[in-house]
Design a protein around this nucleic acid. Sequence first.
DNA 1: TTATAATTGTTATGGACCATACCAAATATT
DNA 2: AATATTTGGTATGGTCCATAACAATTATAA
Lengths: 173, 173
Amino acid sequence: MNVSKTAEKSSEKPGDAAKGRKDVAEVLPEALQLGELSEQLGYVLKRAQLKVFENFLRCMASLQLTPAQFSVLLLVEKNPGRNQTEIASTLGILRPNFVALLDNLESRDLCARIRSTNDRRSHILVLTDKGKAVLARAKKLVATKHEARLNELLGQANREALLEMLSKIANEF
Amino acid sequence: MNVSKTAEKSSEKPGDAAKGRKDVAEVLPEALQLGELSEQLGYVLKRAQLKVFENFLRCMASLQLTPAQFSVLLLVEKNPGRNQTEIASTLGILRPNFVALLDNLESRDLCARIRSTNDRRSHILVLTDKGKAVLARAKKLVATKHEARLNELLGQANREALLEMLSKIANEF
DNA sequence: TTATAATTGTTATGGACCATACCAAATATT
DNA sequence: AATATTTGGTATGGTCCATAACAATTATAA
């Protein structure tokens, strides 16, 4: 790293460096002080979110499902017969950006677009048999590897309290 | 954000003269069932994070500071005399991506790069007077408009519990 | 010492994600 | 019938994130 002798320089500008203890071990780069940063909700929230997504991707590596893809499968399973616009908007995904996402899932035979007979503009979304099977396996992985990790880290009660607070923020902030 | 826009159509005064109107044959509620999605930590976490960042940006509109820029100013203030690599890596920002961010802050005269005399490769980062002033105002805005909103939504105790849990996730997940 | 390796800031570049404008087909409204 | 709206889609640009590579500088090895 940088420091080899930075702190033991005999000629130091007064008031600039040398914040305090530096008697020994100046070979180690001192960790920075996070300060008020660790109290900033947005900062901690973002960091936590990245870690959770990272862990999610690891857990789903065998199924190659991203959080967004998983959420689409979940929502389509729970709401069969809905069209792209409805599924996308519920997830906060803009319709143009939803196209490629669906193309991917459809190319992997996980879900299918079906022209609606009522309204021939819209595409009804359904899970294929393979999609249902993959989703079932995905749920199992998430439960046993992902969410379980949370419980062991926070405890069941805290985990539920956390989810409730986050939902409140997501819905009422 | 992107919210559902259903139900607006039906916001008509009841008792109006019978005009063609919607055939009520179609099922009334268009709201989709979130189902297990609302129990997925990653989903709720991401949603909450977006809302918090959105609110942060609104609060900081007068100062034109993004969460990332704010975190840099905070960290530089707390750790004067550090170089770009140290500040960036502490924030989880890759050095190449940190350049443009700093260019922005420097062009606005909020912080400055100073060639280190010890190691002429590195740039020491410091806040300018204007940077200190802006950061002070930013802190006030965040405290009174942003974090205060959280307290009124969750309560002081819950807010602290939330931060602690998120920190735990960010550090130990 | 000199030759080689490592570090720092930087540019260039590509991918993922997000947002807007626009289009054709189909439907709804007037 | 004329017009407006909706749906899925394309094209496009912006932002963020990640990697490779480079010049200048410093550290290390021979």
